[in-house]
């Protein structure tokens, strides 16, 4: 009988300690960035796309910065992935981001991230790898870093092929003799149910046409080159960028 008690007590302790040791199952996740122009996959260097304003254009450069990715679980828990990632269509490997994070298995309701850096992170000269990548935004415009460089050529009103450079970063407003710097990042939130039950790569898709579509119809004849110091253009980019991203497939390993 005594022995039975001991065995029961031992089993109880074992059960309790097992319960304490139980860790949620987690899986490594990564992200891949997919770039489309409307329904077509992006191809570079050929004028073959038409934006909402009717500008025929090409894409030669696409680089952008995302930071503070968060995954939202159905149970309300938020999984934060620290850091930032610079996507560059010409840098091998940069279109995938493997932060090495282990994420709890389960059902998720969506994903969010910051396009660019938020005010707290957007500090001039702070990130050596971004300095080396020449990603800085001039201090005279508020400093910090570029959020995006989208460049190419378009056919202008005189039917000439000319360059455009859609660069985004801190928005400088001139008021009298004073410069007022407005943070210009935005938070992308994509509500879509998905399940993490194995090592997974999450596709994040950008539709380039949407940068030029709504709510501000963007004509490259008006805002082709030299838009960095243009406050209205920077604000319009912020507004137009809100819907450029969507979730693609989840690639299970």
């Amino acid at each position: 009988m005594k022995i039975q008690h001991y065995i029961s007590a031992f089993l109880l302790i074992l059960t309790v300690s097992c319960k304490e040791d139980v860790q949620p199952v987690s899986h490594e996740i990564g992200f891949s960035f997919i770039h489309n122009v409307g329904t077509e996959a992006l191809t570079t260097n050929t004028i073959g796309y038409t934006n909402e304003a009717g500008n025929e254009f090409s894409v030669e450069t696409l680089q952008y910065l995302v930071s503070n990715i968060r995954l939202n679980k159905n149970d309300g828990k938020i999984i934060e992935i620290e850091g930032y990632h610079l996507v560059d269509i010409y840098q091998p490997g940069s279109e995938t981001f493997s932060p090495g994070s282990l994420v709890e298995a389960g059902n998720y309701s969506g994903i969010s991230f910051v396009f660019g850096f938020d005010e707290a992170d957007n500090i001039s000269g702070e990130y050596p790898d971004l300095n080396l990548a020449n990603w800085n935004w001039p201090d005279m415009l508020g400093g910090g870093y570029h959020f995006m460089k989208l460049e190419g050529k378009f056919i202008d009103e005189q039917q000439n092929e000319v360059g455009y450079a859609t660069h985004m970063g801190t928005a400088r407003e001139i008021s009298g003799n004073e410069s007022i710097f407005h943070p210009n990042h935005f938070e992308v939130t994509i509500l879509q149910n998905f399940t993490i039950d194995s090592e997974t790569s999450i596709e994040i898709k950008m539709d380039i046409l949407k940068w030029y579509k709504t709510p501000n119809l963007w004509d490259l004849n008006t805002w082709g080159a030299g838009i960095m110091p243009n406050y209205d253009a920077q604000v319009a980019l912020n507004q137009n960028g809100q819907d450029v991203f969507s979730l693609g497939d989840l690639i299970k390993q």
Binding site: N131, N134, P138, I227, P229
Partner: peptide, 28 residues
């Protein structure tokens, strides 16, 4: 320096670096 950094003036910095990129090249 300001002309170097101003997109509406020299706009040299997009290829040639800036005070926080003291290599003064983008390596591209």
């Amino acid at each position: 320096r300001d002309i170097f950094l101003a997109e509406e003036k020299g706009d040299c910095f997009h290829c040639h670096g800036s005070p926080a990129n003291p290599l003064w090249t983008d390596n591209f």
